[in-house]
Amino acid sequence: RLRTTITPEQLEILYQKYLLDSNPTRKMLDHIAHEVGLKKRVVQVWFQNTRARERK
């Protein structure tokens, strides 16, 4: 499986959303995924990875 490439514009939106809520609901994940044009699962994993990186 190929990795999904996230553009700088998408990253900017994801980080803005992360600052508002680091643990979004399913509904919010759907909305964010639609807004940035990525699959919900990709957005979900991005949030998981970002939370894990923050803990280190």
Rank of each mutant, 00 (worst) to 15 (best):
R1Q: 15
R1C: 14
R1A: 14
R1I: 10
R1L: 15
R1V: 14
R1G: 14
R1M: 14
R1T: 15
L2S: 15
L2K: 12
R3E: 15
R3Y: 11
R3W: 14
R3G: 14
R3F: 12
R3I: 13
T4C: 03
T4A: 08
T4H: 05
T4Y: 07
T4D: 13
T4L: 05
T4K: 06
T5H: 02
T5Y: 06
T5G: 11
I6C: 11
I6A: 06
I6L: 12
I6K: 05
I6N: 02
T7E: 12
T7M: 07
T7S: 08
T7A: 12
T7V: 02
P8Y: 13
P8L: 15
P8N: 10
P8S: 09
P8C: 15
E9F: 04
E9Y: 06
E9V: 07
E9W: 04
E9M: 06
Q10T: 06
Q10W: 01
L11P: 04
L11W: 09
L11K: 08
E12H: 10
E12Q: 10
E12Y: 04
E12F: 06
E12P: 01
I13H: 12
I13A: 10
I13G: 07
I13M: 07
I13N: 06
I13W: 08
L14I: 00
L14E: 01
L14G: 00
Y15V: 09
Y15R: 12
Y15E: 14
Q16W: 03
Q16T: 11
Q16F: 12
K17Y: 09
K17G: 03
K17M: 13
K17F: 15
Y18H: 00
Y18F: 14
L19E: 07
L19V: 09
L19N: 04
L19Q: 07
L19I: 03
L19W: 05
L19Y: 05
L19T: 09
L19M: 12
L20D: 07
L20E: 10
L20A: 07
L20S: 10
D21S: 05
D21A: 03
D21F: 05
D21R: 01
D21I: 03
S22K: 08
S22T: 06
S22A: 11
S22G: 10
S22W: 04
N23G: 06
N23W: 08
N23E: 10
P24C: 00
P24K: 00
P24R: 01
P24S: 02
T25Y: 00
T25N: 08
R26N: 15
R26E: 15
R26L: 14
R26M: 14
K27M: 08
K27R: 04
K27C: 05
K27V: 11
K27S: 11
M28T: 09
L29T: 06
L29D: 01
L29K: 02
L29Q: 07
L29P: 01
L29Y: 12
L29R: 03
L29N: 02
L29F: 12
D30I: 10
D30C: 04
D30V: 07
D30L: 04
D30K: 07
D30F: 04
H31V: 13
H31S: 14
H31I: 11
H31P: 01
I32C: 02
I32Q: 02
I32F: 09
A33Q: 01
A33K: 01
A33Y: 01
A33R: 01
A33D: 01
A33I: 03
H34Q: 11
H34T: 12
H34K: 14
H34S: 11
E35D: 10
E35K: 05
E35C: 05
E35A: 09
E35T: 12
E35G: 04
E35R: 02
E35P: 02
V36R: 01
V36G: 02
V36W: 04
V36E: 00
V36F: 03
G37C: 06
G37P: 03
G37Y: 00
G37E: 10
L38R: 01
L38V: 08
L38I: 02
L38N: 00
L38M: 11
L38Y: 00
L38A: 04
K39N: 08
K39H: 05
K39C: 13
K39L: 06
K39P: 14
K39I: 03
K39T: 15
K40Q: 13
K40F: 13
R41A: 13
R41Y: 09
R41M: 10
R41G: 15
V42I: 10
V42L: 10
V42D: 14
V42A: 09
V42P: 00
V43I: 09
V43Y: 01
V43D: 01
V43Q: 00
V43P: 02
V43F: 01
Q44G: 11
Q44K: 07
Q44C: 08
Q44V: 08
Q44E: 14
Q44W: 02
V45I: 13
V45M: 11
V45N: 04
V45E: 15
V45K: 05
V45L: 13
W46K: 01
W46M: 00
W46Y: 06
W46R: 02
W46C: 03
W46H: 01
F47G: 02
F47K: 01
F47S: 00
F47H: 00
F47C: 00
Q48R: 08
Q48E: 15
N49R: 06
N49W: 02
T50L: 08
T50E: 15
T50G: 03
R51A: 13
R51H: 13
R51M: 12
R51Q: 14
R51L: 12
A52W: 05
A52F: 04
A52T: 04
A52N: 12
A52R: 06
A52V: 05
R53P: 06
R53V: 11
R53A: 12
E54H: 07
E54M: 08
E54Q: 04
E54S: 04
E54L: 08
R55C: 14
R55S: 15
R55M: 15
R55N: 15
R55Y: 13
K56W: 06
K56Y: 03
K56H: 08
K56V: 10
K56R: 05
K56D: 04
K56C: 09
